[in-house]
Amino acid sequence: MRKGEGEWTQLMRSANSGDGAAYHRLLLAITPVLRATAQRGLARAGQPTDQCEDIVQEILLAVHLKRHTWDPSAPFGPWLFAIARNKLIDALRKRGRRVFVDIDDFAETLPAEPAREQLPAADINAHIEKLPQRQREVLQSIAVESASIRETAAKLAMSEGAVRVALHRGLANLAAKLRRD
């Protein structure tokens, strides 16, 4: 097993037992690796890498919404790269190319790739605009203004439960919209 992946597995196990900080750390740890993976995948398919961050965000959303399909007794890395590969192929297909990406291509990229510069993401912002108002406000508050669930609830005069529901629905909606376009 590659260095780093063992740590991911540990973090995800902690996350599953309710450790939210571990989950946040895991997502931050995999993001640069996913970015390198997406850039490399795009480059290999002869595509410009300017939409790389859109793919990274789509992978992260899929990781989040499908994390219950990871088997905690297995290492986290192969699961993650199967998801990433799937999203990358989808993204390339949307650009009108039929591509076959070997999963080993991803394996090679790890872990030595330096964290690359983050490019702006365009797709997600267009879709946030189209979300129902409550979901948009909650996402804005938590993501952009980095408010907590409780602070967001107070600010928007909602219950914490309603904020949680709006947040989750907003994220699920975003994932669905990104998948469709």
Binding site: A15, G20, Y23, H24, L27, L28, T31, R35, E53, V56, Q57, L60, L61, H64, L65, K66, H68, Q118, P120, A121, I124, N125, I128, L139, I142, A143, V144, S146, S148, I149, R164, L167, H168, L171
Partner: peptide
């Protein structure tokens, strides 16, 4: 929304679990 912001919102949604 940049990726760090997205990650923050995903982490905030950690309480939600699929069956």
């Amino acid at each position: 929304m940049d990726t760090n912001e997205l990650v923050r919102s995903l982490a905030a949604d950690h309480g939600w679990r699929a069956r």
